[in-house]
Design a protein around this nucleic acid. Structure first.
Lengths: 161, 161
DNA sequence: CTATATTCGCTGCCCAGGCAGTCATTGCCG
DNA sequence: CGGCAATGACTGCCTGGGCAGCGAATATAG
């Protein structure tokens, strides 16, 4: 029997963690997309460039998993970035199914030039929060996500933690 | 000069509050949409029904604002719910631009029958969290959203809080 | 070695949602 | 009263992302 954080009879949408996260996510998206809109590089495109720069992903499949996207959607995103000359495709010779992605010099420059915009936006947004509060929020969000993914992959985990 | 929660030289995407919220939101969406998928009523449709049931919104414009949707998207959502016989449209006689929405008996029954699914999902998800932690998370998310919206509507608020 | 399964990148199709424009109605102000 | 802006609901158009399916390449089983 799980804890009764919410009761059926008194349930209010506005108190739901899901509602609050959706709201925060929406506000955050509006904010950052607005800032990037005038930069000639969308926020999503920048995220891809940063993943490549930091070695978090090397292939289309990597990026799809990281960004929780369909591989088809990712192909089209990569197409755009390649057209702009920011990334290059090269087929892997050892496993010819794989296409290795790499940043061009121009792509790297664009990616790095936009770091301050993101960092400043985050710092400005969190200006009223103490260091401890930010760490609490990070920790709570990480635990929540971990829990949700565990339940998703193994619903039986509810009773045997 | 805002606090330096993040630095440009050491910035890592994985630590960003934005990244963590997006991840949590995605996991939460997957979880709840999966649960609703087999119920013949999508989660979004249920949200609309609940708003009407609880008087949080009475018109298409209300719902658009509440759910941060375009009025066009909302019109189409309402179309579906009307086709299913869960809500009814009636033109307001005092202001003939407005269409008042109301739940049918069937719509109300569907909405209420799905409350336990949502409440149980939330409680199960948050089972490993203490009451204090849930309240902290709610509070932090509310403050974050408030801050983001304030910055959006009045960027000058950065320097004069 | 052959056959089957899996992975990878890609494509066509569909749907949800945002944008802009329309029409009707209402409010405001000279 | 007349003109004009604002609001509400709705519609076509376009984009982005999910889904299913493809062909090529690789891994694994018999």
């Amino acid at each position: 029997m799980p804890k009764q954080h919410y009761q059926q009879k008194t349930f209010q949408l506005q108190d739901s963690i899901g509602y609050l996260i959706k709201r925060a996510f929406g506000a955050m998206s509006d904010c950052i997309h607005g800032k990037f809109a005038s930069q000639g590089c969308s926020f999503q495109q920048w995220i891809v460039l940063m993943h490549l720069r930091d070695g978090l992903a090397l292939t289309v499949a990597d990026l799809s998993r990281e960004l929780r996207h369909d591989s088809g959607a990712m192909t089209r995103l990569i197409d755009q970035l390649e057209e702009r000359g920011w990334i290059a495709r090269q087929r892997n010779l050892e496993d010819r199914r794989v296409i290795e992605l790499s940043l061009t010099a121009e792509g790297k420059a664009i990616a790095e030039s936009l770091i301050p915009l993101t960092v400043n936006t985050l710092n400005t947004t969190l200006d009223e929060f103490s260091r401890e509060e930010v760490q609490q929020l990070q920790s709570l969000l990480r635990r929540l996500t971990t829990r949700l993914r565990a339940l998703e992959s193994d619903p039986a985990a509810v009773k045997s933690p």
